[in-house]
């Protein structure tokens, strides 16, 4: 019986090492990237842009303050360039309530992205909230974001530069 055990022990140990490694891993493998929360929608521009705008982004603010938007700036969408008239955007956010505002960028968008932190500290921002003062709700959207969920805007944000 002892000889039988001696003969089988290496097999048992080999298998055991493989199985224990597998089991240990299955329990301990950490979680990598997970679904994120945010908002997605469409931005449409109509007509020729004013010359001063080099790009347009949809900015997410934690409260509506068009006088000092930089203080409330959380994140922003991809950049729409003057050659585009439609932008399908996604803004990664966290659980909470936010306001979406389209913003014209008056400097090179690449410069804006590369230097956002310092730009937001500046007294004069190269950002112009694109809000119709007579009818602000046409372009401003309020959204609530849940955990690991993406909110989709049911209507596109439309910027009509012909008016």
């Amino acid at each position: 019986m002892r000889r039988n055990f001696t003969r089988k022990a290496p097999h048992l140990i080999s298998w055991l090492s493989l199985i224990v490694t597998c089991a240990g891993l299955a329990c301990n493998t950490p979680v990598g990237l997970e679904p994120v929360a945010g908002v997605e929608g469409t931005l449409i521009t109509i007509g020729a842009w004013p010359d001063s705008y080099r790009g347009i982004v949809v900015a997410a603010l934690d409260s509506l303050d068009l006088e000092t938007p930089a203080r409330h700036f959380i994140d922003y969408s991809e950049v729409m360039t003057p050659t585009q008239d439609t932008l399908n955007f996604f803004i990664q956010l966290y659980h909470g309530a936010f306001v979406l505002v389209p913003v014209g960028i008056t400097i090179d968008p690449a410069f804006f992205i590369a230097n956002l932190d310092s730009i937001l500290q500046a007294p004069s921002l190269p950002l112009v909230p694109l809000v119709d003062p007579d009818n602000p709700l046409l372009t401003i959207r309020s959204v609530g974001i849940g955990e690991q969920s993406v909110t989709t805007l049911d209507q596109p944000i439309i910027l009509d530069f012909t008016q």
Partner: peptide, 18 residues
């Protein structure tokens, strides 16, 4: 990586094959 939203988050890599 975005400090508030963790956009462009990077994680260590753990890949197991059998």
């Amino acid at each position: 990586e975005h400090p508030l939203t963790h956009r462009d988050r990077r994680v260590p890599i753990h890949v197991w094959n059998g």
